[in-house]
Write a protein that binds this DNA or RNA. Structure first.
Lengths: 325, 325
DNA sequence: ATGAAAGCGCTAACAG
DNA sequence: CTGTTAGCGCTTTCAT
């Protein structure tokens, strides 16, 4: 790196003190027009850019936030991240994205890293495996998205969530109204979402006087390595004619099985919507989560918290939309 | 924020100087076993974490890199970013992702931001609208991905690219071998990739003694707002029986048109592969780019450059793979 | 083996 | 309106 231009050199160039240069940047109203001009000329001439590092050091604010999610490769999270980034950029914030892969150790490490970097706050899709985030982050603001905080954190932090139960209920309800006679489910038992989605599934069955059989439910591992196997088992053993998938990754794996085994007849529903669902030969019912909006809201919530650390905790539930195909 | 624990407090706790505490962190071999123990006890007791900010300030290295891409919502870039992040995390680096949306101004602003933050380097999918990145980043290392640097930068920077022309050639060649009699193309005229892909398209036609008609080629805008229109026009006007799409976004828009107009018969090829292509009713031929690998390589290249600023510039071309469906 | 002191680039009292 | 000074938390000579 070529040596960077500092406030000192600008001060020299303009024949003023460093403090004055700093004032031109931060409180120009306290500086005379002429001086401002001289200083600005110097900045242009020397191509001065203030060191964000030094500013952070002094001001105890980095204008950086962390976003801790499971995996950017999942388009749900990608959209969410984009929502956050757009909102953040507008306010002059930078975003550091961290993928936990649902691994609590990774999550821990990333949060430590964000603490070390003095991020101004964190937006977190918790793995659900840490009961006490508060002790990890000191008093850094945290906004929980997608998954509910648990244990000690439960009522300590702002949240932006969706109504998983209701969304799932609607999807399964729609399957049955389309004529499904036996609906099975595959969900991922991650954090709070899996359970909630399963609750919706069960309630929908009950609402239609369908029996709830535990063998009709399969719990996926996060990585989806056994989804295909599980799906095949459900299909063959239970002769189900409809399948409710807990997220878009699961659906993808189910589609693989259907294709491989040339199973043409299967009603499908899934939590989370993706554009390409339109082009699949099966008419996929989906629960559309406003991922981008969740991102935006989470960021705004974080900013509010930063501006007013003592305001009461907020819990935001955003609407899902049922897409029938 | 509760006041953070500093080296000073550890020093007090252990009854040593700040310098010694610092040494325990950075050069423990210079410190006696006993002192190390005392200091470490203090760190544990007070839950000390070094301020990355202060370290960056002193060491002139932030352990942070910037990744400037067009849009994380595009799964190609998402995968690329994940490749970078995984590699970066392993080496203790944080990543700041910036979406330009192919907007040169945004790109400019983001690069400035990264310079202000003293990022150690930038991985850049250039919009192609700045001829002289070198002047924007001072001597910060830059690695170009996906798109070639132009103008003054052309031979100044390391690159990790794919062979767009060859990949496109193969895809179009495959279309023709599958029996296509008139292949049209829609590409996005972004940076260098559009032109190169079009070259491949043209060469494939020529290789099969097909005429090259300029009205068979449509140039998309980046946002894809008119892709559908363009596609429909090509299909109706030219009666083409095959379409080569310059990227996965274009393909998606083409699929929408085909669906809406119930056009069942169309051979499709696209640059870039996505898993869901398997489930679409059309047998999509695709050029699979190793996006994750590009990310990994780009990061490694950047690290190499950082370790050895004066080594010769490298130009890496990664292999694409033709997927026939 | 350890400490004192300077300084990275910037901002914010405090004086004048 | 402007300058002087101290200090954010850390690392690194230079002494001892």
């Amino acid at each position: 790196m070529s040596k960077q231009v500092t406030i000192k050199q600008i001060a020299q160039y303009a024949g003023v003190s460093e403090a004055t240069v700093s004032r031109v940047l931060n409180q120009p109203e306290l500086v005379s027009k002429q001086t401002i001009q001289k200083v600005k000329d110097g900045m242009d001439e020397l191509q001065y850019r203030p060191s964000a590092l030094a500013q952070s050091m002094r001001n105890h604010t980095t204008k950086t936030i962390g976003v801790v999610i499971s995996n950017v490769l999942n388009p749900f999270f990608t959209t969410l991240v984009r929502g956050i980034e757009d909102a953040a950029t507008k306010r002059g914030y930078s975003v550091i994205v961290c993928n936990t892969d649902e691994n609590p150790d990774k999550e821990q490490r990333y949060i430590n890293m964000l603490v070390d970097h003095q991020a101004d706050g964190i937006i977190l899709a918790s793995t659900g495996n840490h009961a006490n985030y508060h002790s990890m982050v000191n008093d850094m603001p945290l906004v929980f998205i997608d998954r509910m905080p648990q244990g000690k954190d439960a009522n300590l932090y702002d949240t932006v969530l969706v109504d998983n139960e209701k969304g799932s209920f609607n999807a399964v309800d729609a399957l049955i109204k389309q004529g499904a006679t036996r609906v099975n489910a595959i969900v991922s038992p991650v954090a709070t979402t899996g359970t909630e989605r399963l609750n919706g599934f069960r309630k929908a069955l009950t609402a239609h006087d369908f029996p709830i059989r535990e063998q009709d439910i399969a719990l996926d591992d996060y990585l989806g390595q056994h989804t295909a196997e599980l799906a095949l088992n459900l299909i063959q053993t239970n002769q189900c004619d409809a399948l409710f998938c807990g997220n878009n990754v699961i659906l993808m794996n189910v589609l693989k099985v259907l294709k491989e085994w040339q199973i043409g007849d299967m009603k499908l529903a899934v939590f989370d919507d993706q554009p390409w669902f339109d082009f699949v030969q099966y008419p996929i019912i989906s629960v559309d989560q406003p991922a981008y909006l969740i991102g935006t809201k989470a960021f705004i919530t974080l900013m509010d918290r930063l501006a007013n650390p003592d305001r009461p905790v907020t819990h935001d539930i955003v609407r899902t939309k049922l897409v029938i195909r």
